[in-house]
Design a protein around this nucleic acid. Structure first.
Lengths: 357, 357
DNA sequence: ATTCGAAATAAAAACGTTTTTATTTTTCTT
DNA sequence: AAGAAAAATAAAAACGTTTTTATTTCGAAT
């Protein structure tokens, strides 16, 4: 049997050298022309472009990378729950990645994803990316009140954009959801409905946005001249299990909550599951306001009032900001805080009904 | 004000040249020693390794890439729904990515994610990855009965592993879930429970696993000496909306189904939502068997019987297979089909109860 | 008409590897 | 002890760019 020819190269992939031979110019001129350098004569530029198009020239990323020291990679740290038994942890990353990738489209940058299991893991990954030059920029979320990654990257002058803000006063590019505002709005709404015992189903306190939400929650009570029920702030991971457990625990209290503000869709499902098990009905016995990550609250039974913020938009902004950071733009100019929109699906006036009886 | 020094290099990152100077050997020997080439004397190797450890030498990926023509990237095509109104979809992809990344840990490979919006997009991405050498291997899912990506990659001898099998008789590395078996098992279970009118909530027929599931569905009926109700096979995207719509449509039929076999968790939620709207109760009026992607069916009200397959394991296998493919291993040896386990949470014997009345 | 300076292009070096080829050193054979 | 073969190492080339430095060309000024 004849030897098989693997991957027979039809034409040896065109390089800058190919173009040099085609046009008679030197490779230096070719390079400059393609980079739109002003030193090369317009006429020459045109000729070179034409040749490039003709053979379908694509700059070799590896050559560029070696010479420039860049990697043309935008790294994203993607958190994945470390739990052995996987539970939906409500971390909706596909949309984020989609948004980032949209922003990167048409540029020389590719998106590389680094899975991290916890905060320490994330810090280590950031360190590695910086030290080994694995990427030219970094995007990450799950920002801690004191986040070592932000400290590191700011100190190293490494381009990055965080999804979320830490509590330190540093200048860095970021995109965030206005959690303080949203928690405030949700709580105000429930207080207006007559609720006084409102539970906040919240993430762990070391997460920066957990604190933001507590701030908003407390402010709503304060503005109503009430004391916020701090003992009704549950702290945990974002799993469905946590939502369920919280409801079951809290409803055993003497002075049980009549309403729940949930952190995300995953916990909301758990809250509904818990209420179902206890025979309580949403909108009748208890009110729930949630955060809609994946646009599915409409399908819960009953549909739940939520705050909605399309994550893909955040992702796109993250990507755009990162590109600008990599270009050297000042981080101070690159910040955006989104306010989610309220989608009312429940009257949230259980309290009102209660007081009538 | 003095000029600020950005990223002051403490020590200029050690290269192979640094080691050459340290040890007195030539860079050629250093390279060979680090690559564990047998031509270099063991004693020399030790000296070089020691020096490498001492300065914390890390091979420069860009240099390696240029010289070897490799990219040290494992590309993953991640499908994201093109729908404007985002619906729960692809939530389980984070688990896949996590598994792949686990397999890549400790190797020189990084994971780059390419978001694709539809099948055509995917084919184009694959083409680009091959032509531009963007990666050394490729992983993708959402396999069509006739998948152009598989055709392309097989023809190009490009290393890849698919999550799912196409219907053509080709030799290629793949990982899959035994959908035929699972659909069969679910249907058998419902038939045994007394159901005759069983609906299959299925993905579009051009997807290979949609056909597998139909095969299993039909086989279960045939083995029971019955005709499969082909008119009760609903075809659509995997959205929650689709699940809901299917239920509402089907329950208007004269000869409406008494049971539903669902494709995934998202559609299941839609099915439950639909049943809720119609005032039907799961386990009383209708039985449902689902596929559990993200382990939350236990939290539905009521909990739903599901087939469960930890996606992360699939991801890990995908990654491992890809590495072996890149090493040049024969694709014929790299195939694995997983059978999900049944988690019974409902008796599924509504039919039995019906026939008693 | 020379010379000068600017504009355009070419040549050469460099980025950090791996690999091929060449050279030196060692070991063995007689 | 000389020579050949084998082992170990060194030198050089190459991968495809970008960038710095050098050279050529051309028009303008004297």
């Amino acid at each position: 049997m004849a030897t098989e020819i693997h991957r027979a190269r039809r034409t040896p992939t065109p390089t800058i050298k190919t173009l040099a031979e085609m046009t008679g110019y030197s490779i230096a001129t070719i390079s400059k022309a393609l980079r739109e350098s002003p030193v090369v004569a317009p006429a020459t530029r045109d000729i070179i472009y034409k040749a490039a198009r003709e053979v379908g020239y694509q700059a070799n990323a590896r050559g560029m990378a070696l010479r420039t020291g860049k990697s043309f990679q935008a790294a994203v740290l993607m958190p994945v729950t470390a739990a052995r038994d996987y539970e939906w942890d409500g971390v909706e990353y596909t949309q984020t990645l989609s948004g980032i990738s949209q922003a990167l489209e048409g540029t020389d940058y590719r998106m590389s994803v680094h899975v991290i299991r916890d905060a320490a893991d994330g810090a280590e990954a950031a360190r590695r990316i910086v030290d080994q030059g694995l990427a030219d920029g970094l995007i990450f979320s799950g920002i801690l009140a004191e986040d070592p990654r932000i400290d590191l990257l700011v100190a190293e002058h490494f381009p990055f954009v965080s999804m979320g803000r830490c509590r330190k006063d540093l200048s860095y590019a970021h995109v965030d959801i206005d959690n303080e505002w949203a928690a405030h709005a949700a709580t105000v709404r429930l207080i207006a409905g007559g609720h006084r015992r409102i539970a906040l189903v919240n993430p762990e306190r070391r997460l920066s946005y957990a604190l933001d939400r507590i701030d908003g929650f407390v402010r709503a009570f304060r503005e109503a001249g009430l004391d916020a029920p701090m003992e009704l702030i549950a702290e945990g991971d974002l799993s469905t299990h946590f939502g369920r457990k919280t409801v079951i625990d809290f409803l055993q209290l003497d002075d049980a909550p009549t309403a729940f503000v949930c952190i995300n869709e995953s916990t909301t499902l758990g809250v509904l599951s818990g209420l179902g098990s206890l025979g309580r009905e949403v909108g009748v016995d208890v009110d729930v306001i949630a955060y809609d990550d994946i646009n599915v609250s409409a399908y819960f039974t009953p549909p739940i009032t939520t705050f909605y913020q399309p994550i893909e938009v955040l992702g796109r902004t993250l990507g755009q900001f990162l590109l600008r950071r990599i270009e050297g733009e000042d981080p101070g100019a690159l910040r955006q805080v989104f306010r989610p929109t309220l989608i009312a699906r429940q009257p949230d006036n259980l309290g009102g009904r209660l007081s009538q009886s």
